[in-house]
Design a protein around this nucleic acid. Structure first.
Lengths: 335, 335
DNA sequence: GCGCTTAGTCTAACCGCTTAGATAACGACA
DNA sequence: TGTCGTTATCTAAGCGGTTAGACTAAGCGC
């Protein structure tokens, strides 16, 4: 592996100049010298050693993504997109999957800090301590969900309350009177926003009532969570899920209980992953703009000029489909 | 952030001794000195700078995982397990998701080499060139699939031919005469092994016949691939898929076509992801031992003594379920 | 008591790159 | 012509570790 020294020798310069060329360095380089350096570098197939660069310049050209579950298609898709944008900016994406375990999350946080990532995209289990540690270590953070008041960090997300309201309103507008609501765990970010949105929707449909259950965000847990409802004589006529992942489990639970979707029980998901288009039946959902989220998250983290913590709000899209009772069927085959 | 120098000063030693202590270094350290160093380190909350260590010692304490699609639950699960084992050995797992694109795969290979990962777990699109580049760069590799003859690299996988035969045999033993087979792309690793296994099974069931289709490994592509079959007057009585991911698409295609599973068409997957337990109906499959695969892959890569390329064979498990026509139902709720 | 080995420690070079400070060349300008 | 500001380059000191080589003191055999 050729080093900067080799290139410098061949080009008849010092290593400093080589560095200046490859970084559009802090000092100018004459056109002629630049040409010679680039030529020598090409001949030797020189590529700067990232580790050395990281040690001396303090930038690692890597970003961290901290998520609760890579198996959740929403997060898998997010990771895919983030990786693309990171690569376009010559950065590597490190994925930290906590598998729902706060201890693993904590270990990942330590690992990211140790490895001096240039920034972190955060979907956290324990929001405050996580942000605390990153900011203490001087690592820029973008959170993709609501954060508690008073926490100063950039966030990038849809308006969860409004989206939840729209989704619940859509379900209730079919005339369903009894609503089951599956949220994430009590204390996890977003849960209270979903609740609030649903309550607002209920105000518009005074004859409807809701029952709630909190469940870990996994199709298996969600299935277990709603099973009791579906075995009752009068199951809820419609079920609102705060993630697609949970909705997948609910669809299965309905099938197990011998209930037809949407004839006996309607179901809505939330996230709008493309997996929704091939569930049985296709799942109605609220699409989050994953692609744009990823693009802007990378931009925010890599833009060194902008260090203000700001709340960025993105647009969501309501996607009716067979499972809610609409006959959109599988019309929106966006993949 | 405290450095080795700080610790050395506080402990009244040189930085060399600090290094010896933290690495059980190449030189011995007296018990008393070791104690003082550890005490000083604890007081200062010292943690060796991984980047500096990597630069000077040449080890990065990171492993790479190169996969075609993180959204495929099989790979997502694999990533989860690998990450666990890697963390147990104080290593970070870098995930390179090619999203089915050889160019992205190539970019990841470069990135892994540049970052000097200590080893790579490989599930490749273009097997030979990938292995070539890693071995040329001196990076140890474990491939999780069959590799072409003559390629010297460690592999760690089940016996695909035998597993495919067992799976096809199981399907055909229900008495189904017409078999549809969905494989991965022509040239992708494993495809020929699946074919060979199926042909062996067909020899045992002389009245049965098979038709084949190659499809990218995605539920969406698989759905499109089998749709023509299912719209025919006489669709195949059973469909064998070489991955669960594809089987998910096939289940959907059957539903779309108004065919019942397994009454009209039976389906088998391959991989045995836990997602199989909550499909409609639950999916029969062949379970690969992901956990053991991950454990041994990490061991192989980190065991510096063993540099022999060897072919390690793991055990698979046939998992009958509702979709193949067995009434095991959702009995195997292993998650 | 002497040479030889061994344990324990320190010094300093090195990994490969970045960048501030010193230096040289060159017009512009009074 | 002397001075000053620019531009382009080189020198060398980091970044924070690792580790070979030099050194000392203790332990051993004879």
């Amino acid at each position: 592996m050729a080093t900067a020294r080799d290139v410098a020798e061949r080009a008849g310069t010092s290593t400093a100049v080589v560095s200046y060329v490859f970084n559009n360095g802090p000092r100018p380089v004459s056109a002629e010298t630049r040409r010679r350096v680039l030529e020598a570098a090409a001949e030797l197939d020189y590529r700067p050693n990232i580790l050395a660069r990281a040690l001396s310049a303090g930038r690692t050209y890597s970003l961290g993504l901290l998520i609760p579950q890579i198996r959740n298609p929403y997060f898998a898709t997010l990771a895919e997109h983030l990786e693309n944008f990171a690569r376009q900016h010559d950065h590597l994406l490190l994925i930290g999957d906590s598998a729902g375990d706060p201890e693993q999350e904590s270990a990942h946080i330590g690992s990211f800090i140790e490895r001096k990532v240039d920034g972190v995209v955060l979907v956290s289990l324990l929001v405050e301590p996580a942000i605390q540690r990153f900011t203490a270590a001087g690592v820029p953070v973008v959170a993709l969900h609501p954060v508690p008041e008073g926490v100063t960090v950039s966030t990038l997300s849809i308006d969860y309350v409004a989206a939840a309201e729209a989704s619940a309103d859509h379900l209730l507008s079919h005339g369903y009177r009894t609503l089951g609501v599956v949220t994430g765990p009590e204390d996890s970010p977003g849960t209270s926003e979903h609740r609030r949105g649903i309550e607002r929707a209920l105000e518009k449909h005074p004859r409807a009532s809701a029952r709630y259950v909190a469940s870990p965000v996994s199709r298996f847990a969600a299935r277990d969570a709603v099973q009791p409802w579906l075995q009752q004589k009068r199951p809820p006529r419609a079920i609102y899920c705060s993630t697609d992942e949970q909705a997948f489990g609910v669809l299965f639970a309905a099938w197990e209980a011998g209930l037809r979707v949407p004839e006996d029980v309607a179901v809505m998901g939330f996230d709008g992953t493309s997996e929704c288009t091939v569930t049985i039946p296709p799942l109605a959902s609220v699409r989050q703009p994953i692609d744009e989220t990823a693009r802007r998250a990378v931009e925010l983290l890599l833009d060194r000029t902008n260090t203000e913590a700001a709340r960025h709000v993105l647009d969501y899209t309501l996607i009716p489909s067979a499972s809610c009772g609409c006959h959109a069927g599988s019309a929106w085959l966006g993949r």
